[in-house]
Amino acid sequence: MTDSQIKAHLYLHAVLPQLEEVVRVDAAAQAVVAGWRSSIAMRVAGGPGMRLEVAAGRLRAVRRGRGLPSLGLLLASPAAAVRMFEAGGATPLPWMGGWRLRLVGGLRALSARLQYYLKADRELLEADGAFVEAVLIRLAVLVYAIAVLAECSPDGGGSSGAGDGVISIGVAGANPLQLHCAGGRIAASRDADRRANVTVEFADPAAAYGILSGNGDLWTAIGTGAVRLRGHLLLLDPILQLMSRVRNYL
């Protein structure tokens, strides 16, 4: 895969799904989707697709949905998708429901809220009382991105050599996310519903923020107890390799 193809996968399958959490925790995003019973499909020509299903004030991101979407958007290429996500420099072509201006505008507003949680600096987030939520959303992007990178790598990102198991990644006091490794494939899950074989736990949101923002060193954080590893560490090896590669793309 080219860098653009990998990035397109990451934006659609690791970043966009975090709208689920944004809608759950953010009042402005909730106001946007209030009353919606709609689906928005986004597809990249020659690349990935993603569908956002919204109903009863909740948003769900799925790779495949049933039936025609309320709004269908097409990005001309992976490079165009990257331009759109990184600089708003490309506009998707509506192939379905382009007349539904409320959805088009709503999607734009949701994207802005997602950008806020992903990009706003710590001072602003703390002033807004959104620091913890932003850290958890950024952590979710990382966890999903690990799975996406494994999917985009010819060898599963080395995951096939580490064996099967469940890896839990989270911040103390908050629900962790999980990576399910089986048969050389890795899937990310927001529901920590399986017994983890290995856990990675940040001691607090500040510790996670330090690593996620690139200002802290993971290995130092492990040594100081800011990050706690438990369980079958061998399973973590390919995950940490993939984690270090995420920063090459996002």
């Binding site: 290995w219 130092t220 492990i222 040594g223």
Partner: peptide, 22 residues
């Protein structure tokens, strides 16, 4: 903490803290 400022990973290799329980 001092080590981590001047030595990659603070302690590198198998003697590093990641293999045990800091």
């Amino acid at each position: 903490r001092r080590a981590a400022r001047v030595i990659p990973r603070g302690i590198y290799g198998t003697r590093g803290p990641w293999l045990v329980v800091p």
